[in-house]
Design a protein around this nucleic acid. Sequence first.
DNA 1: TTGACATATTCCTATATGGGTATGTATCGT
DNA 2: ACGATACATACCCATATAGGAATATGTCAA
Lengths: 116, 116
Amino acid sequence: MARAATTSDVFNAVAEPRRREVIELLAGGERSVGELVAELGSSQPQVSKHLRVLLEVELVSVRREGRHRLYRLEAEGLKQIHEWAQRFEPLWQERLDLLGEVVQELKKEEEGASDE
Amino acid sequence: MARAATTSDVFNAVAEPRRREVIELLAGGERSVGELVAELGSSQPQVSKHLRVLLEVELVSVRREGRHRLYRLEAEGLKQIHEWAQRFEPLWQERLDLLGEVVQELKKEEEGASDE
DNA sequence: TTGACATATTCCTATATGGGTATGTATCGT
DNA sequence: ACGATACATACCCATATAGGAATATGTCAA
């Protein structure tokens, strides 16, 4: 088999840099496809395709406004990612603490050395 | 062009469910490949490949111990994901607050209705 | 209705897998 | 040195894109 579909879950949807950019732009408020195209510098079809993926995993929603389609970020979906990563926070925190201790050790040693 | 390489960044590396499982297992402490194979129920080559991807984006590190290779989670890499998602926390929080308000509204209306 | 504008969809191509199978390589015990 | 154990790689296949180009669809204005 091949890689899983990007439309299957939020993690896959967000794995694409371009789509993360779209999300970041939409965090600033609703945008039409055209605006996104201008801001991203991608082709219109590409932007539409990325939006479709984000739509399928419900990271965005659409609304019609005349000839435009206004896309809006549905941030709840990102919560899932945030929470997943957060589970490991104690671990990287631990490392930082450890680093802090090492620094303390080095300082002591240094002081001891300069003492000689 | 094709899809981006999974070895290019942490987001891609974590997009694969199997690799997230590996990360979760390693969060419990160092493991040998064999242990991971047993716990994941995947084939040994597959596990090795996933570990390689995680290694390339530095989400894990390896250590030799006799015939075994002990993999260890390097959680700092996940911090990046956590922080990226965290940027949007105000947005989903906002929605929840809004939801709360709606609930309050409904309660009031309900009380008013039962009052009639 | 006709034309212009805004998007979505389709088609085509090159590429990067994920999984299975077979094989290479390093380490340990005898 | 030899066989067994523990992994890593190589190879093959089917699939899912990301992009680009062309086209279809939908909406508004005259």
